[in-house]
Amino acid sequence: MSLLEVSDLHTHFVTRDRDDRIRTARALNGVGFTLQKGRILGLVGESGAGKSLTVTSILGLLHPPARVVAGRALFQGRDLLAMSASERSALRGNRIGFVVQSAKASLDPLARVGEQLVRVQRAHARRSRREAMERAEAILAAVSIPDPKRRLAAWPHEFSGGMAQRVVIALALVNEPDLLIADEPTTALDVTVQAQILDLLSAAVRGRGIGAIIVTHDLGVVAQYCDDVAVMFAGSVVEQGPVAEVFPRPMHPYTQALLAATPERLRLGAGLRLGGPPPNLYALPEGCCYRLRCDRSRDVCRSAPPLAQVGDQRAACHFAREPAEAEA
């Protein structure tokens, strides 16, 4: 059994316009991927593609007008989307650790850092305050916060951006979850601290056999720390598979463009040609959602792309099997 199996996830924003007509933004359109125990999955894709929305949908953290309209998310065999809110919150913070993208804003500004770490432990386990405080200190040290004992008494606003981000990681890890979902967990960290945090995470994954999803724009993080990768575009996973297969031989044209655009290869003045306007979620093109940006697009792309598979690598594209043009 997979640790997490997401299939055919659809999330919409349903609103009424000024003339009281219903408008639907199709933000997620059948997202699907699986995560096995002992593995790290990297979730990548352009800004606005729906990465954060995918994880908040799975965890039941959506706010209106966002709504999951279809899909399954099996965690250890149980469908997170079919559970009651209370069942889900019993898992969250306990069996499932979550690092939100807005890390700093997610800390309680009115509680000291140590108190927040104690609270999350005692919400899910019988543990004395003293014992919880000791664990809190140990986990702060594990995320490389200098002088953890004294820092337990600090307020969130006294922490730098990267320190706050590490506190949120500590909160997600302190109950030793089976699944960790981390949305941009290392963007505010310098590369040396980033490496320490990712080493810690890898150790938990390899050592305790947990599974992890890392949402990131940093392809270096995916290349060096993730086992699998799922690439999102306009609310769909357009390609997924083992990093060792996808990175050297991307099958989907969007993945090819994404991987070709390493910052080392970008030059100022040449950047804009890469992108293109993000698709309009209120009126997605029929067929392949990437076709308006794709230079290989042909008439057949107006129909839904089939799933091509090579080994464990899968891509949704009519021309997925055709080798990419040699990159300049």
Binding site: G45, E46, S47, A188, H217, A261, T262, L266, G271, L272
Partner: peptide
Amino acid sequence: SSLDLSVRAGILD
């Protein structure tokens, strides 16, 4: 930091 590379390149431009 939370921009993908193509948007990042646009902003740097």
